[in-house]
Design a protein around this nucleic acid. Structure first.
Length: 253
DNA sequence: GCTCCTCACATACACCAATC
DNA sequence: GATTGGTGTATGTGAGGAGC
C-alpha cells in the first residue's frame, strides 16, 4: 500500500484508516516442543536407522541439537569451520556464513540460495560455538565415513546436492515415527528440526550456563533469550541462592 | 524502562516437475 | 513409482526504534 502511494496509484494508504490492535501472541517457548536428552538421542537414532541416507543425515540433526545451529547455518557448515575436534573432550566450531533459501527471484546470484553473513550480523562477523564431546565423536565419524574434503560442505543431499528443507523434513518425520512413543508423536514434541535448537538452548540454561554466554553461543541477544526461554530458567532459585551464599561466604584465613 | 510496532530475515509446508 | 530439488506462500523469529 505504501509503495502504491509512492507510485501515485493510491491517494492514501487505506490501512492507516483502520483502527485495530494486534492480538497478543505467546512469545515464550512452548516447553512441550523441547526434547529432553533421552528423547533427543532416540530421535537421532531414529534418523540413523534410515539406512545410508539416515547415517548421512544424523550429524546434520546433531549439530542442531548439540550446538544449537539454525538449519540455514548447518546447511552451509564447512569442514574448516570445525577449528577443534580433539580425540576426547570438547571441540570448537566457528561459524562465518549461512545459506538460507530466499527463492531465485530474491537472490543476487539467481539461485534459490545465497551464501551470506550470519543472521542479523555484519559481513565478517563470526560466532564461536563449543562442540559437545558426543558431537565431536559424531562429526569425526561423519568426516571419515563420507570422506568430506577440505572446503567441502559437511552435509549434502542424498545425491550430493544441497541439503534442502524438503530432504531433512522428510527424514525428520520418519525419525519421529520410529523413535517416539505414539503419545509423544501425537504431541508437539520436536515437531520440527528447529525444536532441536530450542532443546540445546534450554539444556544450556538448565545446566546453569550464564544467559549472556548462552546468547553468544546461540547467536541472538540476551533480551530475546530471556523473553523466549524465560520458562527454562524458572525453578533455579534454590540453586542461585546456594551459589550466592557460596560466593559471599567469608574466606577462612 | 517497558511495551508496542515495524521491518527484514528465516523456516515450514504443500505442491509440481524432473530425475532415478 | 519413489525420490529429490525447486518454488510460492504462510508463519515464525529477531533487532531496533518510537512512544508512553
Amino acid at each position: 500500500m505504501e509503495y502504491a502511494c509512492e507510485q501515485r496509484l493510491l491517494p492514501v494508504n487505506p490501512l492507516t484508516l483502520i483502527k485495530w490492535t494486534r492480538p497478543r501472541v505467546a512469545q515464550t517457548l512452548d516447553l512441550r516442543v523441547v526434547a529432553n536428552p533421552d528423547q533427543a538421542r532416540r530421535l537421532l537414532d531414529g534418523v540413523r536407522s534410515q539406512g545410508k541416507r539416515g547415517e548421512r543425515m544424523v550429524a546434520f540433526f546433531a549439530v542442531l541439537y548439540y550446538a544449537a545451529l539454525r538449519p540455514e547455518e548447518a546447511v552451509d557448515l564447512r569442514r574448516e569451520a570445525l577449528v577443534s575436534l580433539p580425540d576426547d573432550g570438547w571441540g570448537e566450531m566457528r561459524l562465518t556464513h549461512a545459506e538460507p533459501r530466499s527463492g531465485s527471484r530474491w537472490t543476487d546470484s539467481g539461485k534459490p540460495r545465497d551464501r551470506q553473513p550470519l543472521k542479523h550480523r555484519a559481513p565478517g562477523e563470526t560466532r564461536s560455538v563449543p562442540i559437545h564431546p558426543e558431537l565431536v565423536t559424531l562429526l569425526r565419524h561423519h568426516i571419515k565415513e563420507f570422506n568430506i574434503p577440505a572446503g567441502g560442505r559437511l552435509f549434502v543431499g542424498p545425491r550430493g546436492g544441497i541439503m534442502t528443507d524438503r530432504t531433512y523434513l522428510g527424514a525428520w518425520r520418519k525419525a519421529r515415527e520410529k523413535a517416539l512413543t505414539p503419545r509423544e508423536a501425537a504431541s508437539p514434541l520436536a515437531e520440527t528440526p528447529y525444536a532441536l535448537r530450542h532443546a540445546a538452548v534450554s539444556t544450556w540454561l538448565g545446566a546453569g550456563v550464564p544467559p549472556a554466554q548462552v546468547a553468544e553461543w546461540a547467536g541472538h541477544s540476551v533480551a530475546v533469550l530471556l523473553r523466549v526461554y524465560a520458562k527454562c530458567v524458572a525453578g533455579q532459585e534454590e540453586d542461585a541462592k546456594r551459589r550466592i551464599s557460596e560466593a559471599t561466604r567469608p574466606k577462612s584465613p
